[in-house]
């Protein structure tokens, strides 16, 4: 009895998170913070720094959405999730959106009832091996011990790849990235496989990164993107178009440096005007104010700036744009028009 009493008291005290009704936007506004699901730590994508402030590429998406909706890029509660817990956390309303390098697949979209709001990183599963192993192709890995980070599509892709090539392997499933890296660098496994972006990110942290190579094979398509619950399309639209705003800003040359100047008054590019709210009523249609996209861009810059600052070639993660270049530069990053 005492238990229920104290629970009730705690609930009164506001420990309970807000209700997860259909209108996520209202909940977020009422709460004043955005609950955003991220990983428990992947360098470059989402990890808390020494001061406990979350940094990374996925984190930037959360901050942009928070800025668009709440006007403050720091009004985000980051909820660390594992591969197992992320979907329930989203389905049960514990988080409003999930930005945790999650692969857009048919079954997740259709069977698990989630709505992917776009792709912020085109990835693929790859293999990393020590250089002195002398392996140049994944097809030479017959009998190798492979470390896998579990909880993703990785296990399935791996099984398919080795089965279709008719070679055997010894899987070593590991729960967290840090332990997988420990085992791999200690030589407990010959190969480490996960998304190529994560491979690059983790390789950058090795004591001697040059001793390891990422093999050329890409065994899967992994379009990673933020997702929301099925059914709340208004909220889905906000997340989708915030991401698109970052992408369009890069395409149109709107950066965090020139944005305040550009948004002072309507310029002569109508799409920039519509994006920044100096023309048209796009923000109103979303249920936000006119400057939503401007705030989203100002937090961490446009897509290109976010990429460059968190995982780009100048950082120690050192990822090239590759598939993630703008469509105008031969990449796949493409936003529908703002009109």
């Amino acid at each position: 009895m005492k238990k229920s009493v104290i629970l009730g008291a705690l609930t009164v005290a506001g420990l309970a998170a807000g209700a997860a009704g259909a209108a996520t936007l209202d909940d977020v506004k009422a709460r004043g913070t955005l609950n955003c699901g991220v990983t428990t730590g992947v360098p470059g994508f989402a990890e808390p720094d020494a001061n406990g402030v979350w940094q990374g590429f996925d984190v930037a998406v959360c901050r942009a959405v928070a800025a668009a909706v709440l006007g403050d890029g720091n009004a985000v509660e980051f909820v660390p999730t594992t591969g197992k817990t992320r979907f329930t956390a989203l389905a049960s309303g514990e988080i409003d959106m999930l930005a945790r390098n999650t692969t857009w697949t048919f079954s997740r979209d259709v069977d698990l009832k989630f709505e992917f709001t776009g792709v912020n990183y085109y990835d693929g599963q790859g293999f990393m091996v020590p250089k002195d192993l002398g392996v140049t192709s994944a097809k030479e890995l017959d009998g190798a011990t492979v470390c896998i980070q579990t909880g993703t599509t990785t296990e399935l892709n791996l099984a398919d790849f080795f089965r279709s090539n008719g070679i055997s392997y010894e899987p070593v499933p590991i729960e967290t990235g840090s332990e997988a890296v420990q085992l791999f660098t200690a030589g407990s496994c010959d190969v480490y496989t996960t998304d190529r972006s994560a491979l690059a990110a983790q390789r950058a942290n090795f004591a001697n990164p040059d001793d390891y190579v990422v093999l050329p094979e890409v065994v899967s398509k992994e379009p990673l993107g933020p997702l929301v619950r099925h059914g709340d399309h208004e909220w889905g639209d906000i997340v989708r178009w915030t991401l698109n705003a970052l992408i369009t800003a890069e395409e149109l040359g709107v950066t965090s440096d020139n944005i305040s100047e550009m948004s002072m008054e309507a310029g002569n590019n109508p799409e920039i005007n519509r994006l920044l709210g100096t023309e048209g009523t796009l923000g109103e249609m979303l249920g936000l104010d006119a400057e939503w996209a401007k705030r989203a861009i100002m937090v961490g810059g446009n897509y290109g700036e976010v990429f460059a600052n968190n995982i780009g070639e100048s950082t120690n993660i050192g990822l090239a744009r590759g598939l993630n270049a703008q469509w105008t530069d031969g990449g796949l990053i493409y936003s529908p028009p703002f009109r």
Partner: peptide, 19 residues
């Protein structure tokens, strides 16, 4: 959430390897 309770998944191929 449009979900249901079903045990049919037990009969489907697992798709992953066990060491």
């Amino acid at each position: 959430n449009g979900l249901n309770i079903s045990w049919a998944f037990l009969g489907e191929p697992a798709g992953y390897d066990i060491n």
